[in-house]
Amino acid sequence: MPVKNKQIIFLLIFMILGFVFSLQLKSNLKFNMQKTSAQYTLEDLKKQLEEEKLRGKALKTEIKKNEKKNEENLKSVVDEKHDEELKNRHEILNAIKLKAGLVDVKGPGVIVKLDDAPARTNENPNVLIIHDSDVLRVVNELKKAEVQAISINGERIVPMSEQVCAGPTIRINKRKYAAPFVIHAVGNPDQLYDSLMNSETIAMMINDKIKVEISKSNNIMIPKYNSSVDKLMNSVEVLEK
């Protein structure tokens, strides 16, 4: 082979090599830069999120404090008047608030815990998980047994409380919850327990190996409805009689 030919081959090889090196360098440099900027926004976002969460927490405490103050104010205004009519109305208000789910309550009842079935192979994963309709049915069984107050994972069930599927979670009162679901119900414990145990709903869930735990208790706490009350009624017009 003539010397010239060989030199050309070498030239070509080194050209490609040089090209490869510069390409690699560029890619790495770009990635590193992106990484630092992404890292920076990531940290920044995390910090902002933390701050918002703290703010939310502070607002919730503030709301709780103000609601309490509200009740105390009303009570003191009514008390200092010594007016029978006013006192009566105040008592009616408290009774209605109890019916509306606007008061924390306690009483006898049952606690129902539902959790997804343990994963098995060769099985449709769809039957292993708890669906919105399962929760809906269990809550309906409790209602059939004359339940007086219900909460699911701490969300008080009011007339317009939905239990709908939202991806892997269930939406209740516009907030998303994942399994396990803990349902607190105040009512006659025996009646609630028997209604559940004799229901097709629970039998089918147990058959699907969904974890179901039902226990009676004499001291069940159920929190009041904890979202904006106005959003429950801002598009209805009340017809006075």
Binding site: K81, L86, R89, I96, L232, V236, V238, L239
Partner: peptide
């Protein structure tokens, strides 16, 4: 409203109306 009976009654009635509506104890239209 402190000290004024009519004002207090009015506010009390408002609260009462809200609670009734949320509980489903009023006829509503919309």
């Amino acid at each position: 409203a402190r000290g004024k009976i009519s004002e207090t009654t009015k506010l009390l009635n408002e609260e009462l109306g809200r609670a009734r509506t949320i509980a489903g104890m009023t006829d509503v239209k919309g």
